Simulated scan of single mutants.
Amino acid sequence: MKIDYFKVSEIKVSYTDKVKASERPQIGASKDAAQIFKHIFKNCIQHHEEFYVMLLNRGNKVLGVSCISKGGISGTVVDVRIILQLALKANASALIVSHNHPSGNLTASAADLNITEKLKNACQLIDLSLLDHLIVTDESYLSFADDGLL
């Protein structure tokens, strides 16, 4: 069997940083991350669910934010592998995830708790820190870290 090595796909991994290190916001508490996420969710907060990841460096400065999924009124699908892929691409040391609840309900569902646990375990395998999972509504937010759910 003859193998044509010129027909093998090249895999390219890249991350482009467009913000100076001195200009990156620093996350010191859940309220800092919640303010950023609330701004991100402004166009969907009461309409449909979206799930985002915030990638942080060792100094808890924001490297970037990326949308993981957009869903319907009562849920969205989250793939842990996509989150980890983004974190590895950006050389992140930590991450915070967030999604909105269009209903305004700040109670974490069983699905919310399950994906958080799954992501936490996956992060531990590659020495990433999952710092928090925030549920954001139009009026407030729930921090899994602050409430002992992480």
Score class of each variant (00 low, 15 high):
I11N: 01
V136E: 12
N114H: 04
I36Y: 06
V13K: 10
T137G: 14
L149R: 10
L88A: 09
S22Q: 03
E139W: 11
V77G: 06
L106K: 15
Y15Q: 04
T107E: 15
S129V: 12
L106E: 14
Q35F: 13
M54W: 02
S143N: 12
K7R: 08
A111D: 15
A111M: 09
G59H: 07
N43F: 12
L128I: 05
L63I: 11
G71A: 08
Y5F: 08
S103C: 04
F6D: 08
Y15G: 00
N43L: 09
I96A: 07
G148Q: 07
S69F: 01
A92E: 09
K12S: 03
A29D: 13
K89Q: 13
E139L: 15
S98M: 07
V77M: 08
T116Q: 14
L86N: 06
A21H: 02
C67G: 10
F37T: 05
S140M: 07
L142E: 10
K2R: 11
H101K: 03
N100K: 10
L55F: 13
G59M: 02
V13I: 03
M54V: 02
R81K: 13
I115R: 12
D17S: 14
D32S: 07
L131P: 01
I83K: 00
T116V: 00
N91W: 02
N60M: 02
L63C: 06
L150C: 09
N114P: 02
L95S: 11
I36C: 04
F37L: 13
A110D: 12
S74F: 09
N105C: 11
S103V: 02
N105H: 01
D4P: 00
I3M: 07
S30H: 11
S22A: 14
N57I: 05
D127P: 02
T137S: 15
Y52A: 01
L125A: 13
I45H: 06
D146R: 11
R81C: 06
I115Y: 14
D17W: 00
F51S: 09
F6C: 00
A34D: 03
Y141D: 08
K7L: 02
L113F: 02
I73T: 12
A33H: 09
T116Y: 03
R24F: 07
E23M: 06
L63W: 05
R81Q: 14
E23V: 00
D112T: 02
D147Q: 10
I3T: 15
R24D: 10
K70A: 14
H39I: 10
I135K: 11
T116A: 06
T16R: 12
I68F: 09
I135L: 15
K7M: 00
N105F: 01
H101M: 08
A94K: 15
S109R: 06
L86F: 08
C123Y: 05
H133R: 04
K70Q: 13
Q26S: 10
R24M: 09
L119F: 08
C67S: 09
K20Q: 11
L113K: 15
D146C: 07
L149T: 00
